[in-house]
């Protein structure tokens, strides 16, 4: 029987830090599908996924080469976290960008929709969005995923169920618990999320 040799991520990271480019190739090869599909499950666009995947590993490479990576046997979760943060950055940038439709008609209201917000209100609005995002970050991964897809990506529960490979009842249940948990945290800490 053929012996299967398994080199741990920690060993590959160490080999890479010692100058082995082949170790990096193995690390990417080992985790590429999982990371790529994780990104795609959030953005649903192959080109954007490709960009975020590339940026994720650029960040990984730079951090490793700078000696800033603390090995705790958690290479994949660390890389997934980087990818996750880049996905959030992508949505954050897109939400703030003025959107133009492709009809050829210029719609001034698509650019000026927040015109009535003064600097203070904008700051409050940003703060609330930021607070809510922090609260969402505290949710269990499966609940957070469903909530982001439903609220930020406006996906139907049917789509969410398909994307997360669970039944629609499970997706609905996760959303319900996500909202219950958010409400609990907000009440427990007396957090005020009022716009003005």
């Amino acid at each position: 029987m053929k012996k299967i040799e398994t080199i741990t991520d920690a060993t590959l990271v160490r080999q890479y830090l010692e100058g082995s480019e082949d170790a990096l190739s193995k690390l990417i090869n080992r985790h590429q599908q999982r990371i790529y599909n994780f990104i795609y499950s959030k953005v649903f666009d192959r080109d954007v996924t490709e960009d975020i995947f590339q940026d994720t590993f650029i960040k990984v490479i730079r951090t490793l080469k700078r000696g800033k990576y603390n090995e705790e046997g958690k290479f994949l979760p660390w890389t997934m976290r980087i990818a996750h943060n880049l996905v959030i950055d992508y949505f954050r940038k897109n939400n703030r960008m003025p959107k133009f439709d492709n009809s050829g008609d210029f719609n001034i209201f698509s650019v000026l929709q927040d015109e009535d917000l003064n600097a203070e209100k904008l700051m409050v609005k940003d703060q609330i969005e930021s607070d809510v995002k922090k609260l969402i970050e505290e949710l269990p991964e499966d609940q957070k995923e469903v909530l982001i897809m439903r609220i930020y990506r406006d996906m139907s529960f049917k789509e969410i169920a398909e994307r997360t490979d669970v039944s629609i009842n499970t997706a609905l249940g996760r959303m319900r618990y996500a909202l219950i948990n958010l409400r609990k945290v907000i009440e427990k800490h007396d957090i005020v999320l009022t716009k003005y």
Partner: peptide, 30 residues
């Protein structure tokens, strides 16, 4: 929400070879 439960599996995707090659070259160059 819908008549039939979803049973469609999501296709597993991989990055382009060019992207992987770019990353390996980037690493060598940095």
């Amino acid at each position: 929400y819908f008549n039939q439960p979803p049973n469609k599996k999501v296709e597993k995707l991989n990055p382009k070879k060019e992207t992987i090659q770019f990353l390996l070259n980037y690493s060598k160059a940095l």
